[in-house]
């Protein structure tokens, strides 16, 4: 066997592998350009897992009213909201919160909301604006927690969809590791 016989099939395989990657990239980007564009331009991509929340209608047989849903909030709006007294609520697990969380955030894990909500309500006044977050876009817990907090009586609940990853990427302070 000479060197050309060894080298050329491998080169061909490598080139074909490269073509596969380029083809997949073109298809993937074409089909998801809006999502990618939004992510790179910092726009909020709402990924609600609870589209509408119907409240049981006890007063009449008419269609049930739609429960209020938390509004999404973007990173650049957080500063003014926090300065005005809003409270960050970490919907991730308690261990993730202990490890690292947004500076000033209060822990209320979505998985434990039933057992911890009463204690949370004693700590945080119902008039305060809440901003729920979890592990970024695609993480449904912050939105779902927001729905529950609104049902629990909080007047204004917002969801920071970018969550911990976007906060970290922006170089904003994280607390934890204790």
């Amino acid at each position: 066997m000479n060197n050309a016989a060894i080298g050329s099939p491998l080169q061909r395989i490598f080139l074909e592998a490269l073509v596969l990657c380029v083809f997949a990239a073109v298809v993937g980007i074409s089909l998801n350009y809006q999502l990618i564009f939004n992510a790179f331009s910092g726009k909020t991509v709402a990924v609600p897992t609870v589209a509408v929340v119907a409240v049981p209608d006890v007063a009449s047989d008419n269609a049930a009213p739609i429960a209020p849903l938390p509004f999404p909030v973007e990173l650049d709006e957080l500063e003014s909201l926090l300065a005005a007294g809003a409270v960050l609520v970490d919907a991730r697990s308690a261990s993730a919160y202990r490890q690292e969380h947004l500076s000033g955030a209060v822990s209320l894990p979505f998985a434990e909301v039933e057992s911890k909500l009463d204690n949370f309500k004693q700590q945080v006044d119902l008039k305060r604006t809440l901003i729920a977050y979890c592990s970024g876009y695609g993480c449904p817990d912050s939105f779902d927690l927001g729905v529950i907090l609104l049902q629990a009586g909080y007047a204004e609940v917002l969801v920071y969809e970018g969550g911990e990853p976007e906060w970290r990427a922006a170089g904003l302070p994280l607390v934890g590791g204790d």
Binding site: A24, A25, G28, I29, L31, N32, L35, I36, A39, F40, G42, G136, Y137, G162, P165, E166, R168, A169, A170
Partner: peptide
């Protein structure tokens, strides 16, 4: 942050 979306799309 945004690169996660590009990777997830491809």
């Amino acid at each position: 942050y945004a690169w996660n979306y590009l990777i997830a799309a491809i």
